[in-house]
Structure formats: C-alpha cells, structure tokens
Simulated assay, not measured.
Amino acid sequence: MGEEVKLYGNWASPFSCRVDIALKLKGVEYRYYEEDLKNKSASLLEYNPIHKKVPAFVHNEKPLAESLVILEYIDETWKTNPIFPQDPYERAQARFLARFIDEKLMPTLREAWINEYKKKEAEEANGYLEFLEKELKGKYFGGEIIGAADIAGNTLALWLPIYEELKGVEILTEAKFPKLCKWSHDFATHPVVKEVSPSKEELIAIFKPRFNITK
C-alpha cells in the first residue's frame, strides 16, 4: 500500500510502549525512532508541538499525539486483530476503562505512594483497584485476547511491581486482588508485550536514582 508509519518513542515510557504493543499485535510495519527526552529531536517537536512528549505517531505524514488517541486510530485504520470490541457499548466500556486507568487510578497511586505514604489517597487507590478487580471478567479486560484497556494498564502490570520491590511496599497483592495479579502476570509475559517493553532489570536501573536507592 506504500504506507509510511513512524513512531517516535522512548524505551522507558509506558505511553510509547502502548503504541509499540498495539502495532505489533496488529502486524503493522513501522519505523521506530528512539528519543532522548533530555534532547528531543526536531522531528518529535514538529510532530507533537503541543505536548512535546512521546509518543508521536505519524501515518503518511499525518501526526497524532496521546497514546489512547493513537490506539483508537490504529484500530480503526488496520482492521486485523482488533484491540477494541466491535460492539458499540463494549467499545465505549473499553474506552472508559483505559481513561479510568490514566486519569483516576495511576495519578492517585502516584499521589499516595511515590513521595510519601498518604492514607487518604491510598484508600482511594485501593477503591479504584477493587473496581478494576470486579471489571476483570476474563483472562484480559478484552476477554481472551489483549485489548485496549489491557494495553492502557501496562503501567500497572510492568512499572508498578518495580516500584513496589524497590520501595518495599505492597499495593497489588494476591490476597486483595487475585484476578488483577493474574492479569498482570499474563499481560507482562505475553510474547508481544515482552518484546517491546523494558525488562525488569532496565526498569530497576532507571528507578533507583529517582528514589535515591544506592544498593
């Protein structure tokens, strides 16, 4: 078809990894450009002038920003291996879950735990996790195959466990959230997810300086 697909991302960004996962799942060929976030390329700034962040997705020189917007565009453009449900209601639910993870769950988790423990925010985050636990009715949020809500949850499945290990805290536990814990393992070990996501060792290396951990 002569299509040109480009992705400007960063290996440690969960948001650009989302787009990587979606493109790989759908078998779309694309060129990947690794960005130095301390010295952003002119192309990244041109294609994402508002946010000036990764990911920047370009299809036939038409750019898009924001990972969840990009996921929808990819799914609507390449019909094979859909990552959003075909049923309108289920599709809307998948959109809701993806935005819930980005706009409610992850910001509250960061506020509750990253700098210092905050009881009120931690209780709120636990309530959000309980909601997700109830929403998980199959192997993945998308049923038996990975879908958009699962891809949006990559931070929960891949980045959160590293934080828990380094800081010695327990947030997503099997005792409280057995279905979410199994989902997290199944998602993190999926061949496509493993192929494009940073390894545990790589994530530990970038998290340690942020948390002033020297061991």
Rank of each mutant, 00 (worst) to 15 (best):
R31F: 06
L45C: 02
R210G: 11
P107M: 07
F100P: 01
G142W: 12
F207T: 04
E124M: 13
N60K: 03
E124A: 10
K208A: 09
E202C: 06
R110N: 13
V69L: 15
L109C: 09
S43G: 04
L109T: 04
K179N: 12
I204T: 09
F131S: 01
H51A: 07
D20G: 07
A92F: 13
A205I: 05
L180H: 09
D36L: 13
E34D: 15
A152S: 15
W78V: 06
T77P: 12
E35Y: 03
S43K: 15
K6P: 04
L44A: 08
F207S: 07
I70D: 13
R18V: 02
L25N: 04
K215A: 11
T189H: 11
P82W: 05
G9R: 02
V54C: 01
R99I: 04
A175I: 09
E174S: 10
K40S: 03
I145W: 10
L136S: 00
G147A: 03
L156V: 11
L172D: 07
I21S: 01
K26R: 10
R110F: 14
L7W: 04
S184F: 00
L37S: 02
T77K: 14
V28W: 13
I151Q: 13
W113S: 08
E4K: 15
E3Q: 14
T77I: 08
Y128H: 11
A22E: 06
H190K: 08
A125R: 09
R91M: 07
E61C: 09
Y47E: 13
P55D: 07
W183L: 09
D36M: 11
C17T: 15
A92E: 10
G27E: 06
E130I: 00
A65S: 14
T77L: 13
N115S: 06
S67I: 05
S67R: 02
E76H: 02
G153P: 02
E3G: 12
T214C: 00
V58I: 10
E201K: 15
E66P: 03
P63H: 13
Y47I: 14
S197H: 15
E144N: 15
E130F: 01
M1T: 09
K182V: 13
L109Y: 08
A152M: 09
I146T: 02
F141L: 03
F207G: 07
E111P: 00
E174T: 06
D20C: 14
E121V: 01
F177H: 13
N126Y: 11
F96E: 06
P191W: 05
A92Y: 14
D20Q: 15
E124P: 02
R110M: 14
G153R: 13
F57D: 05
